[in-house]
Nucleic acid binder design. Sequence first.
DNA 1: GTTGATTAGTGCAATATCGTACTATATGGA
DNA 2: TCCATATAGTACGATATTGCACTAATCAAC
Lengths: 149, 149
Amino acid sequence: MPDANPRVLFELFKEIGIIEQLSRALLEAQLPDGLIAPHFAVLNHLMMRGNGAVPIDMARAFQVPKTSMTHTLKGLAAGGYVELRHNPQDGRSKTVWLTPRGEAMRNETIGKLGPAFEDVMTALDANALVGILPKLVELREHLDAARDT
Amino acid sequence: MPDANPRVLFELFKEIGIIEQLSRALLEAQLPDGLIAPHFAVLNHLMMRGNGAVPIDMARAFQVPKTSMTHTLKGLAAGGYVELRHNPQDGRSKTVWLTPRGEAMRNETIGKLGPAFEDVMTALDANALVGILPKLVELREHLDAARDT
DNA sequence: GTTGATTAGTGCAATATCGTACTATATGGA
DNA sequence: TCCATATAGTACGATATTGCACTAATCAAC
C-alpha cells in the first residue's frame, strides 16, 4: 500500500524545487553574459507563441508582475535581442519583436543544451521520464486553478 | 511509440518551473510577514536533519553561496526564529539553533498548508502522484552529478 | 613552532524581483 | 460628447541573490 500521506507532497515539492534550481543553472550557463532564465523564457515565448506579443500578456502568461516584465524586456532590448514597438491597436501598450540576433541566440542556446539533454534521456530511461509529464501537467493545472481561491 | 525526443525535456523543465513558482507562492502565503521560502527551508532542515547545524553545511546542502546563507540566517535571527552560537569545534564558524518560536512557527506553517495539500491528494489520484516521485529523484540525482562535469 | 595555504563568515556592490504610486490612454455609460 | 473608471507601462524604493574582497581561524608541511 503506497504512502498517500499529504506529507509526501513536501518531498515532491522539494525535489521539484531542486530540479528547477539545477535546470536553471544549466540553462544560464549557456546564455550570453548578463542574460538569465527569464530573458530566455521571453525569447522562447515569442518564438513558440508568435512574435509581436504585448508585454502585459507575457507578464500574465509567466505569472509575474508587470514591473518584472518591464525590467526583463529592458534587458533584452538593451542587448538587441528584441525590439519594442508601439501597439497600433492600443496607445497605452507596446509590442515585442524578436530581432534576428535574438532568434539566433535562442536557437544557439537550445543547440548548446542538446548534449546535456541527450545525456539525461539516455541515462534515465526516456520513456519513463516522458511518462511523468502528464502527471506534472495535472499538478500544475490543479495548483493554477487553486491559486484564485 | 512515445516521443523520446530531447525536446520534451524542455516541456518537463517548463512544467517543473511553473510548479515550483506556484508551490512557493502557496508556502509564502502562510509565512509571517518578511519571511520567504529559504527561511522556511532552513527551519525545516534544522528540524529534520538536526539542530545545531553549521551555516556553511546548509549553504552546501541548498547549493546556494555562503553569502546567501548569511543573509537568510540574519533574517531568521532578527525574527527570533533561530539563535546563532559560536562553534566550539571551530572558531571560524557558528552553529544554528531553532528557538521554540522557530519550531512553533514551522509547525504552524505546515499545519496551515494541510488543507491545500489534501486538496491536491484527493483531486489528483494520490497513488499516481506519489508514483512520479522516484523518477524525479532520479532526475535530480542525475542533474546533480552532471553539475560537476 | 612557524609559515603558507585553506576555510568560514561577512561587508559591499551589482543586479533581480516586486509592491506602490504615477502618467497616459482606453472604455463604457449618461 | 463628457467623465468616471479601468488598464498598460514605468519610476522608485525595499528586499533578495550573489560575486568579490577582506578578516579571522584552522590546517598542513616542514
